[in-house]
Design a protein around this nucleic acid. Structure first.
Length: 883
RNA sequence: GGGAGCUUAGCUCAGCUGGGAGAGCGUCUGCCUUACAAGCAGAGGGUCGUAGGUUCGAGCCCUACAGUUCCCACCA
């Protein structure tokens, strides 16, 4: 076949990938519809941010999802992989603000409406970018169903949920201390605060006692908050200070009177035992303040600039204020000492700015009632984490859950459906803009300016994307989804919230399995990050090595939940495998005749090798299918890899070459059939992992002409299990390996062909060796093969070896180095003695014989017999050489 | 302070329910053998972190310890 003869020696993914992806799209293979004849299988994508760029984490996450969905599609499910993107309110808004700043424009200059117009423009430009990048990965998403968290339907779902939870009293507005990011200018939830160890100081400051010479010393890491102090607390059982409780202190610099209070929150052992209490700027102090009815004095504005309450420090940034305050305290002789102190500082996940806890009015979700069903559904196994250990992390978090702050002082996002009467302050939470206040009749009504936490909408993703709150056919058919694939870093942000949302609004868990993967790290084991600049761009890897190689590298040798290092060496070896597959296929295709008619195949012409490889792919099919079912994707891939490279390429193809090179040979058609069958099935098993190359090859093989994507997943069949042929092949392969070993060790030139004599008394061995003679000739470089029952006619200086039940001799024309041969045989002898010692150790152990399963004992006995026989023959051989 | 993971060949990692230690890369030797030098054949290399325990039998189960990474908590 001329066309096939011309296939390039090296696989070029760039010639294949885009072409095939377009074809799949055109054919609509990714599209899934409710089909009563099929079972549904659903995965919803973790929606990437619209401003995002594909990174290795995405590449891994989506490769794993694609492997699962492609497998299930081939297995006959109506397999839906539902894609989409997330508006990522805080991230997008921050980027847009930065971009505008470069043009000298601020949010306020634009106004809300204009700003949102800009944001939607951005979404148009960048939202599509990540989608195109996912396509480069080969993701078989149903793009006809692509969703966006701010789509009309999804926004409807968000509103519906907000109203529902508000009506149930599960959403409330409250004034309390929250995490505030002065840079992003918004409140954030607890999990968006990342603690970072920083080197800081402990400043010891004197607070004089009123009308006394006495004073207390407090230790603080944040002296600027002194301005907002409304008490100093001591432990009620601290005898050192108990006499001061109830007395009044003079707050330095401010010269205000504050009380000394007793609260068990104070640790006697830590610091000085006296704690300044700043209810408006510290979460713990806030709690203490509530217990003791202390005033809350905010001393900073939303940008962490000191406000009116800071008196002379007004207008200073919090760190400038700190410096100034310390100077002033120093002057007054109130700064006692300074110690170095490393402590954890809360920073904004988004921008790394140090969080300023502030008192403000925010919307919260009451979590306790929602957490209970979400815990139960994991406890009772309705939802399983893979690996299982992550359920513990989930429990730990969910059991100690705090109310969720959901309002954000941002513009880009779902606006909170709450309206305020400007006359009487009445709050209306409803779907549409009210005309008049039902309480006072005023028409002066304003909507809450805040938007919702991005995760509020992603929490609804598994059902909002399927049409909820409408009762759609899709929702009915595809919900609940089957697997959620994600990294362990977003279990709290997303997984947990989807679970309680699913339970609350659908009364059903949103998925059955949470398949957790680790983080992709750089070759030195560091997390890939922008600031380190150590990220490896998956798109560059694809451009250089191909998508299949990237996917292979991300999957091979990786086990669920574990982090992995990514290196170009790994991609190179992955690329090499793709090339190997390519060339094996090239070989197969080059050796097909025109107008092959497999209906003429005569199975009686199958050789031991044919049945062996069929039996092997049959077993591998079973194993790989099981591995994928158990989410052991790396193990499954390893098995396909080993099968293709070692068994199919290194053994089977090498063994069938003589039958293919001779166009008149009997069984030529049968070989072609077996090659086509085995390679075809191997490509199917490999397809979920390496979709492009497998499709390209499958298209050239002889089959029903359908795309491999929608072909049927191979089935294990008992009829294709040929145990006899597998054991025969073991003899043949052992013989070949041993002979190759001798030849290498005895420095026999590779090109030199030699006569080989096999001595065996076993009928089975004899028949097998005769049957496999051509294979041995070719693969072990034999010129002639003789199988005989005794050592008749074997020259004394022949080199030799032994496998189970068979002695092998190679008479060489030249004189051999007897010493070297003795040395080599001695090595064999020592090896066998080691094996015998181990087996005997077991069989001579009474406990083993009494308690081990009979099958294990039988196996050990068989091994002992085999090794004893081999050992005896090696010893005899050594003795005859020493003469 | 609490919790989890990891520790296996020079490097990076697999090892499913306990039954003779594996892969890739690297190293050494020999090969351009008409699918593939991004390849073929062969070799070397591990007391599976340490110490106990359970078991006929432990890389795998239990306990303690050491090193390491991460998560949660956040004592000013």
């Amino acid at each position: 076949m001329d066309e096939q003869q011309n296939i390039a020696k090296q696989y070029d993914p760039s010639q294949v990938e885009d072409r095939l992806y377009s074809k799949w799209m055109e054919e609509g293979y990714f599209h899934a519809v409710p089909d009563s004849k099929k079972k549904p299988y659903t995965i919803v994508i973790p929606p990437p941010n619209i401003t995002g760029q594909l990174h290795m984490g995405h590449a891994l996450d989506n490769t794993l999802q694609d492997i699962l969905i492609r497998t299930k599609r081939m297995q006959g499910y109506s397999a839906l992989w539902l894609p989409g993107t997330d508006h990522a309110s805080i991230a997008t808004e921050a980027k847009l603000v930065d971009a505008l700043a470069k043009e000298g424009i601020t949010k306020d200059m634009l106004g809300r409406e204009k700003f949102l117009e800009k944001a939607w423009e951005w979404r148009k430009i960048y939202g599509g970018r990540i989608v195109e990048q996912l396509k480069k990965l080969g993701s078989s998403c149903d793009w006809e169903r692509e969703r966006f968290t701010m789509d009309e339907g999804l926004s409807k779902a968000v509103q519906e949920v907000f109203l529902k939870l508000y009506d149930k009293g599960l959403i409330y507005k409250g004034e309390r201390i929250t995490n505030w990011c002065p840079k992003c200018n918004t409140s954030i939830s607890d999990i968006e605060v990342e603690f970072e160890e920083q080197a800081g100081h402990f400043w010891y400051i004197k607070y004089p006692v009123k009308d006394s010479d006495e004073f207390v010393v407090i230790a603080t890491t944040r002296p600027e908050t002194l301005l907002g102090d409304t008490a100093v607390a001591v432990n009620p059982e601290d005898e050192r200070f108990i006499h001061l409780v109830g007395k009044t202190l003079i707050l330095p610099l401010v010269n205000k009177e504050i009380p000394v209070i007793a609260d068990s929150y104070v640790d006697k052992e830590f610091g000085t035992g006296c704690v300044k209490i700043t209810p408006a700027h510290d979460p713990n102090d806030y709690e203490v303040g509530l217990r003791h009815n202390l005033p809350q004095i905010r001393i900073m504005d939303d940008k962490a600039i000191m406000n009116d309450n800071a008196g002379q420090y007004k207008g200073l940034d919090r760190y400038e204020a700190r410096k100034k305050i310390l100077e002033d305290l120093e002057k007054l002789g109130l700064l006692v000492k300074i110690e170095d102190h490393t402590h954890n500082v809360g920073t904004c996940q988004r921008c790394r700015t140090v969080i300023e806890p502030l008192i403000s009015k925010q919307w919260y979700v009451r979590m306790k009632p929602l957490a209970e069903p979400a815990l139960e559904v994991v406890r009772n196994g309705t939802i399983k984490f893979v690996p299982e250990r992550f359920s513990k992390i989930y429990f730990n978090w969910m059991e100690n859950i705090q109310d969720w702050c959901i309002s954000r002082q941002l513009w880009w996002g779902h606006r909170i459906p709450a309206y305020y009467c400007l006359e009487c302050g009445h709050i209306m939470v409803q779907a549409s803009d009210p005309d008049v206040c039902p309480k006072c009749g005023s028409t002066r009504i304003e909507q809450d300016p805040d938007t919702l936490d991005t995760w509020f909408s992603s929490a609804l993703w598994p059902f909002s994307t399927l049409g909820w709150p409408e009762k759609t056919e899709d929702l009915e058919y595809f919900y609940p989804t089957d697997v959620l694939v994600t990294g362990y870093d977003i279990i709290f942000f997303w997984v947990a919230r989807m679970i309680f949302s699913g339970m609350e609004h659908m009364k059903e868990a949103p998925f059955k399995t949470v398949f957790i993967h680790g983080i992709v790290k750089d070759p030195q084991g560091r997390k890939m990050s922008k600031s380190l600049g150590n990220g490896i761009d998956p798109l560059e890897v694809i451009a250089q090595y191909g998508t299949d190689a990237l996917r292979f590298a991300l999957t091979i040798g990786n086990s669920p939940g574990n982090d992995m290092r990514f290196s170009t060496e790994k991609v190179e070896s992955s690329r090499n495998f793709a090339n190997k597959v390519w060339n094996a296929s090239r070989f197969v295709l080059m050796n097909f005749d025109e107008n092959i008619d497999f209906s003429k195949v005569d199975k009686s012409k199958f050789t031991v090798a044919d049945r062996w490889i069929i039996s092997r792919i049959n077993t591998v099919t079973k194993e790989v299918t099981e591995n994928i079912d158990k989410f052991e994707l790396g193990l499954g891939l390893q098995k396909v890899y080993d099968f293709i490279w070692e068994e199919f390429c290194d053994w089977y193809i090498e063994m069938v070459k003589p039958r293919l090179y001779d166009r008149e040979s009997t069984g030529r058609l049968e070989v072609q059939y077996v090659l086509n069958f085995v390679l075809g099935n191997a490509m199917k098993l490999l397809h979920p992992y390496m979709p492009f190359i497998t499709e390209e090859i499958y298209n050239h093989l002889i089959n029903d002409g359908r795309s491999i994507m929608i072909s049927q997943w191979p089935q294990y069949s008992e009829e294709l299990n040929f145990a006899d042929d597998e054991s025969k092949m073991k003899i043949i392969m052992d013989a070949i390996r041993n002979i190759r070993n001798i030849r290498a060790e005895m420095n026999v030139p590779p090109a030199k062909r030699a006569k080989m004599i096999f001595v065996t008394s076993g009928e089975n061995e004899k028949a097998t060796l005769t049957e496999g003679a051509t294979f041995i000739q070719r693969l072990a470089g034999a010129s002639e093969i003789v199988v005989q029952a005794d050592k008749e006619g074997i020259p004394a200086d022949a080199v030799g070896t032994v496998i189970a039940g068979v002695e092998i001799f190679i008479p060489l024309d030249e004189l051999i180095d007897i010493e070297k041969e003795i040395e080599r045989l001695n090595k064999e002898k020592i090896n066998l003695e080691g094996e015998l010692k181990r087996v005997d150790g077991k069989l001579n152990n009474e406990g083993f014989v009494a308690k081990a399963p009979p099958k294990v004992i039988e196996e050990e006995k068989a091994k002992r017999d085999k090794y004893q026989d081999m050992h005896q023959k090696v010893v005899e051989r050594l003795e005859s050489l020493k003469k």
